[in-house]
Structure formats: structure tokens, C-alpha cells
Write a protein that binds this DNA or RNA. Structure first.
Lengths: 196, 196
DNA sequence: TGCAAAAACTAATAAGTGTTAGTTTTGTAA
DNA sequence: TTACAAAACTAACACTTATTAGTTTTTGCA
């Protein structure tokens, strides 16, 4: 059944999660009811449970998909043989494109992950901390190699991550300023401030 | 009644709003029930309505108090006769201290303002936009005076605002890294990247 | 065409929501 | 001590919540 449907948009589960991401972003996880989600899909609330286990499971899917994407990119960047500044540039660029391409999902992962239930809450929180500490290590190496000024690595990482996270504020301004322009300006701003 | 109480912590309304800010930050505006808030204060939910008009009114108080504080500081900074870089430094410093001193309130204003009802929602949204555009003007003048590189002012403002907003991530790390250290590092990072 | 499975439906559950009405307790000042 | 007002209480309202059970419809394949 519905194979054509599936080949276009993925399984119905995928459709539900996609729509949920959009609603969770706009109204929050708690602020979005299963009835509202169902109505947006064109189905009764109870029918959703033929495809998903619970409301919380939807949030898990969204958050861990995003976390996984960022982790994979970090793995790849760490492996690549290039300068530290170049690695940071790659990471920042990836953040920017994720924020633009899968805005709803990234936003929800950033804002609603605290609504996850255990053990997912701890798991997600640990992944975030791990991501941060690996970026800190990256900067430390850059300082050792004298590519980067003698700054406080942790503060630098938080500043960079916060700045790119704030790209969510750009939603609605995308027509006025091109993504490319945002990208080059932000990378310059954030890396000129620390590069030697 | 309770005049001693009042002189210490302000009116009972103030106590309610303070506790609400703490809960709203941890569990979100919708995620916090009036019963839960009441229990945290040591009272029945209905008793809260002797001091506040509605749940929504609490959120209004929090959001507009914060917005007002930032606006006042911006007014003062604009008036002060100093370099543009110095003005930006002042503003960034103010953001950092607000985030550290009234963390709950600033966090709630940043994350939960979308739950405001009209006309407060529009009012708040307009204040944010006004704040941004006045910072953009500041940077434009800095470029004219050749104090600042020829960057995209809007991107720079968003980058700075996002970075300082991200200071909320520092909650819990405050003991490890001193505020002063965070402050000087962030200001250098954010201003070295754009100063000529 | 008939069968089995997938996915929709209706109806109900138990719990929780903000808020109000009406009443009782508490604290202050005369 | 009495009177008044502030602020607490109990109980209830009318809804909304996520989720389940049981049933019917729809679908794809043999």
C-alpha cells in the first residue's frame, strides 16, 4: 500500500516526523498536541499510533537524527588532513548549511531536547558535551601549532557554537541576505578574531 | 501582613514572578502548570490569583522587564561619546552580565516570548527588531568612520547577539571559568574579527 | 475475486489544564 | 476586642491531554 506515496516522501512515519518537526518548532513540543499533529496530516490522532510508538518517540527521532549528522561531520573533519583553521571553517560551514537545509529539525533539537525522557535525555546531553570537548581539543591543537592565538579554547568554542546556532534568527531574512554572504561574513568574523 | 517578608524579597507578586522565571526556564512556559508553581511557593494554585491576573501576565512581566533593561542600556550607550568599538564592547559586556545576573529571566525572555499573547507578542517582537536595527546603525557608523572593516552590518550584529545569547550554555560552567575571563575572551573574539 | 494485513475510524479512559466562586483564615489597625 | 481587608483555602467548572481498545475500511497481492 501507498508505495508511490512512500517513494516520494519516505514512509508515513517519516511524514509524521517531518510535520511534527515543523509544529514542534513553531509551537514547542508540549505546545503541540497529537490531535493538532494528526489534523495537519489529515488523519485522526489515534491513527498516528499505527506508525509511531508515542509522542516522545517522535522527539527522539528528530533530536538523534540531528545529533548523528553533526557527529558524522565532526568525525570526517577530524580525520581530514588540513589546517585547524580550515577544519573550523568546514565545521562552521556545515552548521550554517544544516541550519538552512533542515531548519525545523535543528531548531527542535536545540530547543526541545530537554523534553526528552530518560535515558534519551542523558544520552543526548552527553553527545552535546562530547561534541563540545572535541571542538575544544581541535582548538587546543591549533594553538599548539601556532595557527591560533593563545585564547581560552572553551570560550572560543562556545562563542562559535552560539553564533552559528543563532542562525535560526535568520529565518525570514534569507531573501534579503544570501546564504553565501552570511557564510563568508560569519566565517571571517569568527575566525579572524582568533587566527594568528 | 508580611511586611518583613515584603521588605526582603519584594511583594508576593515579585516572589511569584521570580519563582515562575525559574520554572519557566527549566520546564518551559506551557510545561509549567499553575499548580506546580503554587506548590513551589507553598500555596494552592487558586491563591496565586490574589496577586496576579493570569499565567500569561507572569510571562509578560518577565519578558518586558528584560526588554526594558536592554533598551535602557542601549539608550545610554548610544548617547555616550566614545568610539564605536567601545560602544560595542559596552553592549557585549552588558549582555554578559545580564545573562549571569538574571539568568532565568533573560533565558525565558529569549526562549518563551513566542508564547506571549497579542498585543504583547507584537510589541515584544517589534522591540527586538528595533534593538537589532539600532545596533546595525551603530556598526554602519563605525564602518563610515573607518573604525570597522567593510563587513555586512546585519550579519555582524546577528553574530554578536547570537554569541552573547549563547552564554546561557555557560550555566554550570561558571565555577570553572570566571566571568571576567569569559568577558574579555568573548569581546576580543567578537571585536578583533571586525575591527580595523 | 478473495484474503490478510495495514491503517483508518469511533469512543472512551484517566489525568491534568487555567481559572472562578464562595468561604474561611489570618494579620493589622482602631 | 472588634472590624476590615488581604490572602489563604476547598470545590468545581469546562476543556484538553496522550493513549488504548475495539471495530471498520482500505490496500496490495495471490
Amino acid at each position: 500500500m501507498s508505495k508511490i506515496f512512500a517513494s516520494k516522501n519516505g514512509t508515513k512515519k517519516d511524514v509524521i516526523i517531518k510535520k511534527a518537526a515543523s509544529l514542534f518548532r513553531k509551537k514547542g513540543f508540549i505546545g503541540t498536541s497529537m490531535r493538532e499533529l494528526a489534523e495537519n496530516i489529515g488523519v485522526e490522532a489515534s491513527s498516528l499510533y499505527n506508525h509511531i510508538g508515542s509522542k516522545s518517540e517522535i522527539l527522539q527521532h528528530i533530536c538523534f537524527k540531528v545529533a548523528n549528522d553533526f557527529m558524522l561531520q565532526l568525525n570526517e573533519t577530524e580525520k581530514s588532513e588540513t589546517t585547524t583553521i580550515n577544519k573550523l571553517e568546514k565545521l562552521i560551514s556545515f552548521h550554517i548549511h544544516m541550519m538552512m537545509d533542515v531548519y525545523d529539525e535543528v531548531y527542535v533539537a536545540n530547543h526541545e531536547w530537554k523534553q526528552l525522557e530518560e535515558p534519551f535525555l542523558s544520552n543526548f546531553s552527553n553527545q552535546r558535551k562530547l561534541y563540545e570537548s572535541r571542538m575544544i581539543e581541535l582548538i587546543k591543537k591549533g594553538i599548539q601549532k601556532k595557527e591560533i592565538k593563545n585564547i581560552h579554547p572553551q570560550v572560543a568554542v562556545f562563542t562559535i557554537l552560539s553564533a552559528v546556532r543563532g542562525l535560526e534568527l535568520w529565518q525570514g531574512h534569507k531573501k534579503i541576505v544570501s546564504i553565501k554572504e552570511i557564510e563568508t561574513n560569519m566565517i571571517n568574523h569568527l575566525l579572524n578574531g582568533i587566527a594568528k
